[in-house]
């Protein structure tokens, strides 16, 4: 029976569809032309210009500070949530808890953005980096919790009992048994939280207020105001960073990133 080639042809088309725009963008970042219409020779001028844009680097610094703190906080909140969901799975509280964790994932970003904005305005919280941080933690917790929960569901619960049987107290068990076993899940969750925080535009845009700028907000206004070659260069840098991170994470977690997520 000859297998139909059609699905493979579609897949090939889809992969080209995925990567061709990105590839063209990268190539264009080395194009000396200002408008990207036709190749006018190899040039690094846009990269040089990029390094002179102080606003971009300020935005990048903000993004990094927020992403790191969001990762740390959501890692703690997400992990405790996952432990609770795993250990007390059947209780009524945990069922409600699970709904709480799960629902933010199916809510469109714009709704989360607007609702957080309403909450901050109503409570009189001034918009800025702090509100961005609070908003990011809110959607990152769910992702971290589900990734770690997926990892927890893969192990044999008897190991915890075995550790206690061998005389370890709760703290020792957590530190010597649970933590090392969870490490890949934690790493995957942290990476996901970090990426989501760095990349988020919609929610950030709603809760940022006029003063605070993150990298996506900066990129958005550059797109709006047509600084094409600069974005090409910036995008290429970010893509390189992304691919390096994905490569490293693959080493780390061996395809487990999506093991429990969905």
């Amino acid at each position: 029976m000859r297998r139909s080639r059609l699905p493979f042809a579609v897949l090939a088309f889809v992969l080209v569809f995925f990567y061709l725009p990105i590839l063209i963008l990268v190539v264009n970042s080395f194009n000396a032309s200002r408008f990207g219409s036709g190749w006018q020779g190899f040039s690094l001028r846009w990269y040089v210009r990029l390094f002179q844009e102080a606003e971009i680097w300020q935005a990048a610094r903000n993004t990094l500070v927020i992403a790191v703190s969001v990762t740390l906080v959501s890692l703690v909140l997400g992990t405790t949530a996952a432990l609770a969901l795993h250990r007390f799975a059947k209780t009524r509280l945990q069922r409600l808890h699970y709904t709480f964790i799960y629902t933010p994932l199916v809510v469109p970003e714009i709704l989360m953005g607007i609702s957080l904005l309403m909450a901050f305005v109503s409570a009189g919280v001034p918009l800025g980096l702090t509100t961005i941080f609070l908003a990011h933690v809110t959607f990152c917790v769910s992702y971290v919790a589900l990734v770690v929960l997926g990892r927890l569901q893969d192990f044999d619960d008897a190991v915890v009992e075995a550790a206690q049987d061998l005389g370890a107290d709760w703290w020792t068990t957590a530190r010597r048994v649970l933590l090392p076993m969870l490490a890949p899940g934690l790493a995957a969750g942290a990476l996901l939280a970090f990426t989501l925080s760095v990349d988020d535009f919609v929610i950030t845009f709603f809760v940022a207020g006029p003063g605070a700028t993150t990298l996506p907000i900066r990129i958005y206004s550059m797109i709006k105001h047509g600084a094409t070659p600069l974005i090409n260069a910036l995008s290429t840098l970010l893509l390189t960073l992304t691919f390096l991170t994905v490569g490293a994470s693959q080493r780390l977690s061996k395809n487990k990133l999506f093991g429990g997520g969905s």
């Binding site: 405790t80 432990l83 808890h97 709480f100 309403m118 109503s122 809110t138 769910s142």
Partner: peptide, 27 residues
Amino acid sequence: QEAALTIPSFVWLLLFFLVPTLLVFVL
């Protein structure tokens, strides 16, 4: 133990997810 593990994420999502969402309806 359950409370200690549940409260942090639960309260956070209550404050920053459930309440804001309901607020949209109110406003």
